[in-house]
């Protein structure tokens, strides 16, 4: 896609969002992220509550976007947890990874290193066995992007 078409499309997209009440939110939520969450989790982002039970660790400032260490931990017993997703709001493809837990894990813990194209929120979303979702988000400032 060339720059001109991209700008036109994004302008249209933003205009479209502002005219549909209820969908537009002034926060960092981007439509690509919402699409990805809807597709992979089957619920919309607005239905997911932030919770202090999900502990997301990520640097406040990352020197290189190519290698951002992220870890997720929770005190919720692993028996009650189904899976975990990691998203980065402003990446070309926001979905990073998902993990399925079993009681054999002993606890909820996952660590990895991710790529970030620019400063963005990182989200960790836990799905519990009862079907509810819990989320933690943290903004990571990126000085040099790692997606291009």
């Amino acid at each position: 896609m060339d720059r001109r078409r991209f700008l036109l499309l994004s302008a249209l997209g933003i205009a479209g969002l502002t005219f549909v009440p209820g969908i537009f939110r002034p926060s960092f939520a981007s439509s690509k992220l919402e699409e990805d969450i809807q597709k992979r989790l089957g619920v919309s982002l607005s239905q997911i509550k932030e919770s202090a039970d999900v502990k997301l660790q990520a640097p406040t400032i990352a020197e290189s976007g190519a290698n951002v260490p992220v870890s997720v931990e929770s005190d919720i017993p692993v028996e009650k947890v189904d899976s975990l997703w990691i998203f980065v709001d402003n990446n070309p493809s926001p979905w990073i990874a998902d993990v399925k837990f079993t009681p054999m894990n002993g606890k909820v813990y996952f660590a990895t290193r991710i790529k970030m194209g620019q400063t963005s929120n990182v989200r960790a979303i836990l799905k519990l066995k009862d079907g509810s979702f819990l989320m933690a988000a943290k903004e990571v400032k990126v000085t040099v992007g790692g997606c291009g």
Partner: peptide, 17 residues
């Protein structure tokens, strides 16, 4: 555990579980 991932994970991925 099953971990699904895409290109968003850094080169030479590190995973801890």
């Amino acid at each position: 555990s099953v971990i699904d991932m895409g290109g968003g994970v850094s080169a030479n991925p590190f995973i801890g579980i």
